[in-house]
Design a protein around this nucleic acid. Structure first.
Length: 285
DNA sequence: CGAGTTTGACCCGCGC
DNA sequence: GCGCGGGTCAAACTCG
């Protein structure tokens, strides 16, 4: 699907909520697709250094950087959760109901076994922690204006947690890619300062193609459409190869097919999608 | 019945 | 050492 089929409108064509911040990012219209998204605005892409967990390309224009909940952190160990599940889920769980049904001997045995398992797991984790320098997966935060929290992006996700965010009425949801051996995670949360903004943070690389890419897919369309814009953005910041790698790892674009237009094609107001997409591609009302 | 969600408990790092 | 907050686990639950 192309950008034209998807429809692109200028921001000023929309009035969403009470948001009043200035934005130079593309505004994508899904209204002529059959999906339920309606509209979605890509507000910014934030990349994080895998080593320091600090945002890269810090001069990127993001409306409200405080919306990106990743605090600037120094070298901090990154929890190594992938493939570190307890070996025996059943024995590691302590259920009061089941414990009551057991006699004392069985209870003690079960508890001992449970403790052993916990101890084992902990020791294994500890050993790994001390022996391995853990490295963070690259992370990218997408700020989008959307009516829905969990945006369809072409991959299947399983929610594994939800936490209340401090100083925010909106919870943060944790998702993991459902594909086996794929450890990509993402966090989704709404901005406290502007509830119409959804901040999606991706972490890791998909080890498989998108299961639904190729079919009519809203977010896939968005990313294929906005990849040009994003690529150009990073070209401006001399990080094109890094970002191409990153986006391709997320399944958003194919490095082979990426072409960078001439630098001169970019105006000083490079953030506008209008500047990177021929004007005839815009749907005018 | 399998896949996905909910949710309380737990772990861990960090700041004080 | 302690409390707080972020992140994850996993049993219970829901849904198709």
């Amino acid at each position: 699907m192309t950008m034209m089929m998807m429809g692109v409108k200028k921001k000023e064509d929309y009035a969403i909520g009470s948001s009043s911040f200035h934005c130079n990012y593309p505004f994508l219209d899904f209204s002529d697709d059959k999906g339920s998204l309606g509209f979605m605005e890509l507000l910014g892409v934030q990349e994080y250094s895998p080593l320091l967990d600090l945002p890269l390309g810090s001069n990127m224009e993001v409306p409200q950087t405080s919306d990106l909940k990743e605090p600037p952190q120094t070298k901090k160990d990154w929890p190594e959760v992938t493939n570190q599940q307890p070996a025996t889920p059943n024995s590691s769980s302590i259920s009061s109901a089941s414990s009551e049904a057991l006699n004392d001997e069985q209870k003690n045995r079960t508890v001992d076994q449970t403790h052993d398992e916990h101890k084992k797991t902990k020791e294994q984790l500890k050993a790994k922690k001390t022996n391995q320098k853990r490295q963070r997966e690259p992370r990218f935060a997408f700020m989008t204006k959307s009516e829905v929290d969990h945006l369809e992006d072409g991959y299947r996700w399983r929610k594994y947690g939800q936490k209340a965010v401090k100083n925010s009425p909106f919870p943060r949801s944790y998702y993991r890619c459902t594909s086996v051996s794929c450890n990509v995670k993402k966090r989704v949360e709404r901005s406290f300062s502007d509830p119409s903004i959804v901040v999606t943070t991706y972490e890791g690389q998909h080890t498989h193609p998108s299961p639904v890419m190729g079919r009519s897919n809203n977010f896939g369309s968005l990313m294929s459409g906005s990849e040009n814009y994003i690529s150009q953005y990073y070209q401006q910041h001399h990080q094109q190869q890094l970002h191409v790698d990153a986006l391709s790892s997320l399944g958003f674009l194919s490095p082979k097919n990426v072409t960078f237009p001439q630098q001169t094609a970019l105006s000083s107001d490079y953030g506008r999608l209008q500047d990177v997409v021929p004007s005839h591609m815009f749907k005018q009302d």
